[in-house]
Structures are given as structure tokens and as C-alpha cells.
């Protein structure tokens, strides 16, 4: 328990607990910000889980019919209804932006200011596109199909309520991410992470780890989208 020598850890669970329990840091070599982001994401996971569990509970228990997602979310292309077209594109864009984010992190660690900045910017643009398409989808549902939070022409009123609430909450996450991505793109281009320029609010220096932390958040938001996608569009 106390043996401060971490070079010779016993194996198995005992070794792991000795390592975690040893002095200074529980997660060796993990930056404070990164650890914080992980814990925050854990907490956020609970938020989304509560939303989705509530959704499942209500959907399973309402008496009215639940609308067919492929009809509600279809688009007409040249007169032919294509189910889930827009969603497929949105999902594709968001997943791609996860890819560009990963590249940004990679170049960040290589201290490649230009490429890192470029990929952060690309990610931001991907996110923005996603939000734009979501706005389009919402307006279609609201103005064209007449779906409202308190009711809709297709069936159970909770359909609109949950849809707008959960995608809205997710969209807010994406938007916050986009704002930070733009800010960080600027910071990277300006070289803040190389020169150790202090943050405006926090007055603290930071380095390229910040990109990785932002990346964690971004991947999480993508991951949540996959679940929302599955629960709303495929169920």
C-alpha cells in the first residue's frame, strides 16, 4: 500500500491498486485538464443516458402509435422519397469531423502549428455543417410537417417532444464545441500553444494538450450522436 517504489509493482489487481493509490496522481502522466474532461464526460454520459432512458420508457408505454421514422425523416430527391437521406449525410459529416479532429490532435503533438490549426478549423466547419443541417431538418419538421413539441400529425405527442429536446440538447453540445473549435483554431494559428501566451479568462498558459482535450469532447459528442441516431431513426 505504501511502497513508494513503482518500478517493481506486484502483478494483477494488487499492482493496479498500488499504482492508483500511490502518491500524487491516480492516473500517472495524465494531465489535469484531460482527467477533468474524462470525468466531465462521465457525468455528461449520465445526462444523455437519463434522456434516452426516459425516451425509451415513454415510447414503450404510450398508447398512441409512434410515428415511423423512415417516413417522417425521409427526403424527396427528384420526386423519389429517400428515407433517412439527410440523417445519413449528417452522420457522415459528424463522423468525418471526428477524423479531422484526430488528425488535429496528431499534428498538435508534432507541434505542427499550421496543419494542426487547419484540421481544427476543418473540424469546426464540419460541426457547423452538421448544426446547419440539423436546423434545416428542424425547420422541415416544424414548418412542413407540422411537428410540434406538444403534438404532431403522425401519432404520439411525445415524439416531437423527445425529438426536439434530445437532438436540441445534442445540438447545443455540438454548437458549444464548434465555438470552442473556432477559438482554438485561432489560438493555434496565433501560436499561443508554442509561445505560452496566457488565456484571456483563465490567465493560465496552455499547450497542445488543450487540443487533445477538446478532441475528447468532440469524439464524445459524436459518440452520443450514434446513440441518438440509433434510437430515433433506426428504432
Amino acid at each position: 500500500m505504501t511502497d513508494p517504489n513503482l518500478n517493481k509493482l506486484p502483478g494483477g489487481f494488487k499492482g493496479m491498486s498500488t499504482d492508483i493509490g500511490s502518491d500524487q496522481t491516480a492516473f500517472k502522466g495524465v494531465n489535469w485538464g484531460k482527467a477533468m474532461m474524462w470525468i466531465f464526460l462521465l457525468s455528461d454520459t449520465f445526462v444523455f443516458s437519463c434522456f434516452l432512458i426516459a425516451y425509451m420508457k415513454v415510447r414503450a408505454s404510450v398508447v398512441d402509435d409512434w410515428p415511423y421514422p423512415s417516413e417522417v425523416f425521409g427526403l424527396e430527391v427528384a420526386g423519389v422519397p429517400v428515407p433517412l437521406l439527410l440523417i445519413a449525410i449528417m452522420t457522415f459529416v459528424l463522423i468525418t469531423s471526428s477524423g479531422t479532429m484526430a488528425l488535429a490532435v496528431k499534428y498538435g503533438y508534432e507541434k505542427n502549428r499550421k496543419l494542426c490549426g487547419l484540421f481544427v478549423l476543418l473540424t469546426a466547419i464540419g460541426g457547423l455543417t452538421f448544426v446547419g443541417m440539423q436546423a434545416f431538418e428542424w425547420s422541415k419538421l416544424i414548418f412542413h410537417d407540422g411537428v410540434r413539441p406538444w403534438g404532431n400529425p403522425f401519432g404520439a405527442p411525445q415524439f416531437g417532444a423527445f425529438f426536439f429536446m434530445i437532438t436540441g440538447f445534442h445540438g447545443t453540445h455540438v454548437s458549444i464545441g464548434v465555438i470552442f473549435l473556432f477559438i482554438f483554431a485561432r489560438k493555434v494559428y496565433r501560436g499561443d500553444f508554442d509561445t505560452g501566451r496566457r488565456g484571456f479568462f483563465t490567465t493560465m498558459k496552455s499547450d497542445y494538450v488543450a487540443i487533445e482535450i477538446l478532441g475528447l469532447y468532440w469524439h464524445f459528442v459524436d459518440l452520443v450522436w450514434v446513440f441518438i441516431f440509433a434510437f430515433f431513426y433506426l428504432w
Binding site: G21, D23, Q24, T25, F27
Partner: peptide
């Protein structure tokens, strides 16, 4: 978790 002083297991 991450900011204890030396020896503070």
C-alpha cells in the same frame, strides 16, 4: 486524484 503532494497516497 491528480494533485496530491509527494507521499500522500
Amino acid at each position: 486524484l491528480q494533485a496530491r503532494t509527494r507521499g500522500m497516497t
